Simulated scan of single mutants.
Amino acid sequence: MYQKVCMENVAIVLHDTRIPENIGAAARAAANMGVGQVILSAPRNFDMERVLKVATHSASGLVEAMTVCNTLPEALGTFNWIVGTTARLGGTRRVNFSPADLATKLIPISSENRVAVLFGPEDRGLTNEDLQLCHDLVNIPAAGFSSLNLAQAVMVISYELFKARTREPKFYIPRLACRYELENMYEELQDTFNRIHYINHENPEQRLDKTRSFLSRYQLRSREVSLIRGFCRQVARYGEKCYQDGVTAGAAGGKKTQETR
């Protein structure tokens, strides 16, 4: 029996779009491939009438059910696995997958988890900061000019997800930690790094970026995120206890010195 991507658990997230017609065309492409949801993050010049005109009747239901969020973290908060799209390569943009390989990976993940495929604005794509919120990166190979039209890119990814099949024995991937849970964990890790002076204060983001990159390789579950956060809280408690013990010892030492005079 073939296994497929659960398209109902897949959402296309369009961040910082500039042209309403591009939203409509992207939604039409997503609807054609059975994508479950389209989410807009901080859209500019949003005009539902212009969006629907391009989406046509076939995608009107998907468009009318769109969620519009003010920020990218808000748009991605409830998703368990996030894939960022990028045309630019190199540096910190270590692309994990081609569209076909990505689709194969998402077959077991999508059965029990909500998956977001994130696309950036038409003129410049996603920033490095945006991509920090992603577990995987995907690049669409192209000859010559590497940047595709937004709707074209949505169609390529959605098509690969729709047609992906595998005969491999199914292995179970349970519900993973959502973006909100992960971001709270990273905040506590950063606070812990600061407390134990594990961060280069001239470039404080470098250590956390490497930590994000490392932990994103693993499919962290909610209980594993809770375990890491519990460790951070215990480090904070221990550090506070050591500080208070030092203050008490210092005060006692000062008092003893005065008494022996």
Rank of each mutant, 00 (worst) to 15 (best):
P141F: 04
T78K: 14
A55G: 01
D130E: 01
S98N: 01
A65S: 14
P121R: 02
G77Y: 00
I157W: 11
L118P: 13
S60A: 12
V83D: 00
S146W: 07
D123C: 00
E181L: 02
D130T: 02
L89F: 03
L137G: 10
L106P: 09
T104H: 11
L118S: 03
H57N: 14
R88I: 03
G77S: 15
R124S: 13
N149L: 09
T104W: 05
A65L: 04
N149M: 11
E64V: 04
Y159R: 15
D101K: 12
I140L: 07
Q132N: 14
G125W: 03
V117R: 01
G144F: 04
Q152E: 11
E160W: 13
K170R: 14
L118T: 02
P108T: 01
V138C: 09
N149E: 10
C134Q: 09
A177K: 02
T127V: 04
A103N: 04
I107R: 11
R167V: 09
G84Y: 07
P169D: 06
V154N: 13
L133Y: 12
F171M: 13
R88T: 10
V63D: 04
I173A: 12
P141K: 01
F97V: 00
N149G: 13
G125T: 02
D123H: 05
L148M: 14
Y180V: 06
L106I: 02
L182F: 04
N70P: 05
L72R: 00
K170G: 14
S98H: 08
R179E: 00
K170N: 09
L137D: 10
E64N: 14
R124W: 06
L89N: 07
F171I: 13
F97K: 00
R175M: 13
M185A: 04
F145P: 07
M185P: 15
I107L: 06
C134A: 10
Q190W: 03
T166L: 07
C69N: 12
